Amino acid sequence: MNFLIEHNLAGIVIGAATFLIIGLFHPLVIKGEFYFGVRIWWIFLVMGIAAVAGSLLVDNILWSTLLAVWGASSLWSIGEMFEQRKRVEKGWFPEGPGSRRARRKK
């Protein structure tokens, strides 16, 4: 950590990690909605609350920031999951086994 601060690299590391975290959540939402529907929204809620709480407890600014980004991305993903369901209903994305229609057909 000292190396990052001494060479003014902490911001670049945080920016790159934020980019990767947000990039990770995009397919998680799409695949999660595809296979499970919106029923898994609560997993994102628990993960988000835990990460935000963890960010408050960690003294290291790098890890605290990354936990906050993870938590915010998790909480944002709840809304995106419901939006993804609408995109599937519009035909923009394929319908998976977790969709409402697929569950009704069983």
Rank of each mutant, 00 (worst) to 15 (best):
W92H: 10
W70A: 13
L67D: 02
G98Q: 04
G96N: 10
L62I: 07
F3M: 06
S74D: 09
L45T: 03
H26I: 13
H7N: 09
G98N: 08
S74P: 00
I30P: 03
F19L: 15
T18K: 02
V69H: 00
H26N: 11
R39D: 11
W70S: 11
S64E: 04
I49M: 07
H7W: 10
G71E: 02
S73R: 01
F34Q: 00
L28G: 09
N8F: 05
E89R: 03
Y35Q: 08
D59G: 08
A102S: 12
K106Y: 12
G98R: 03
G79T: 12
S74C: 11
L20E: 02
L28D: 08
G96E: 15
G23Q: 09
A72V: 11
A16T: 09
I5V: 09
M1Q: 04
R103C: 03
I21W: 02
G79V: 14
D59P: 00
R87V: 01
E95A: 12
A102Y: 05
K106L: 15
V13K: 04
F44D: 14
E33K: 10
F44I: 03
I49R: 04
G98I: 10
I43F: 09
K86E: 14
G37R: 04
I12A: 12
P27R: 13
K31L: 13
N60F: 07
A50N: 12
I49T: 12
P97H: 12
A17W: 07
V58S: 01
I30M: 07
P97F: 08
I5T: 09
V46Y: 02
A102G: 08
I5D: 10
E95Q: 12
I49H: 05
E95R: 08
I21Q: 01
R85N: 10
R85M: 11
